[in-house]
């Protein structure tokens, strides 16, 4: 692989091996003047992740490949020292997105070489040079995270355990693999004391900046359940219970966990089941408490994702809001968002 490729894909083992043959830099030495450009570029990598959610590399940076490659492990060490899973996630995604941009148009041989290094079994498809066959196990490992329906195995050509993908799709799968790979790398045990003072100051600066960014990312708590904000699946189950109809085990699991995760008390939930034809107060109370994390292992169970409920055949035809969400607990939030907007216009 050419040296420029190491600069494009600095996370590869080969890139690290190649560089360590040329220069051997320890963290403590990074304070030296000649390594200043490396540190600057490392800081810039993380800042780009925070502001653009993607690392960009200019052609000058690419040509200065030694600096470019070395700035990567330096940035990884800095992110590791800050030790925040969310930052690790943002940073690894930004690096992986940059790799995706390059891999889409990369020479197919390089794409295959990178796949191999990430443990992904792919081979060129015979029919077309730009297509690949990817092992189903590896496909399932990464593509199940993607939301678009074209990624569902049922919508792919699957023959003898191999899934056909285009180069762009393989690049997208590699992005996912690269993100996980870099996320793992940033779990290294690095402390502020491992850096020379000048670099430690830089890391403190990044951390301060990250705290600000993090505030704007705030994760929202689930909304409190009321009759008006329930998703169609939950609404239908409750209607059926009220009519005295029987719910299957999977439906009861979904309903109980939904209500327990949106502010309903054990008594509220028990009241709902009391109309069931085979209501057994003691057994139902035990089961509801177990799912709500109040007995046993104290695990509070979450309701299944929308796709799981579809698989189990307990998702009725959803409404237009359902298209925007992946999880029933997101429904009330989506509904209030829509309501807020509509209200704002009046």
């Amino acid at each position: 692989m050419s040296v420029l490729r190491y600069a494009k894909y600095p996370f590869l083992k080969d890139a690290v091996a190649f560089i360590s043959e040329q220069v051997d830099v320890q963290l403590q030495e990074l304070g030296r003047d000649e390594f200043k450009p490396i540190v600057q570029r490392a800081v810039q990598r993380i800042q780009q992740a925070l502001t653009n959610r993607r690392i960009t590399t200019s052609s000058e940076e690419l040509i200065n490949y030694l600096c470019e490659v070395l700035s990567f492990p330096t940035a990884v060490a800095m992110v590791s020292a800050i030790d925040d899973p969310q930052l690790r996630s943002v940073y690894s995604l930004s690096e992986a997105k940059a790799a995706y941009g390059n891999l889409r148009d990369e020479d197919p041989k390089t794409v295959l070489a990178i796949s191999r290094e990430l443990g992904i079994r792919a081979e060129p498809a015979k029919e077309a040079i730009s297509d690949f066959n990817l092992s189903l196990v590896d496909y399932l490992m990464y593509a199940t995270n993607f939301h678009q329906k074209k990624w569902k195995p049922v919508n792919r050509t699957l023959i003898h355990g191999m899934v056909k993908v285009t180069q762009q799709e393989l690049a997208r799968i590699l992005q996912e693999a690269i993100q996980r790979h870099i996320y793992q790398k940033t779990s290294a045990k690095v402390t502020m004391g491992d850096f020379p003072d000048s670099i430690a100051e830089e890391v403190v600066g990044i951390k301060r900046n990250w705290e600000k960014v993090k505030e704007t990312m705030g994760f929202r708590a689930a909304a409190v359940d009321d009759a008006a904000n329930r998703p169609p699946c939950i609404r239908r189950m409750i209607e059926r219970l009220e009519k005295g109809e029987h719910l299957s085990h999977t439906e009861r699991f979904a309903l109980t966990t939904y209500l327990a995760n949106s502010g309903r008390t054990i008594d509220d939930i028990l009241g709902l089941y009391s109309t069931s034809p085979d209501f057994n107060p003691a057994r139902t109370e035990y089961q509801v408490k177990h799912l709500a994390g109040q007995t046993g292992s104290r695990t509070k169970y979450k309701p299944p994702k929308c796709t799981t409920m579809k698989t189990q055949g307990i998702c009725p035809d959803g409404d237009e809001l359902c298209e925007k969400i992946r999880h029933p607990l997101q429904y009330p939030l989506a509904k209030s968002d829509r309501g807020d907007r509509a209200g704002g216009g009046c």
Binding site: L140, M141, T144, K150, P153, V154, N155, T307, T311
Partner: peptide, 18 residues
């Protein structure tokens, strides 16, 4: 991933146009 295998068998979520 097992859920996707089930969907493959049962045809859940299939879009024939794909």
């Amino acid at each position: 991933a097992r859920k996707e295998i089930v969907d493959y068998m049962t045809g859940t979520g299939i879009d024939p146009s794909l």
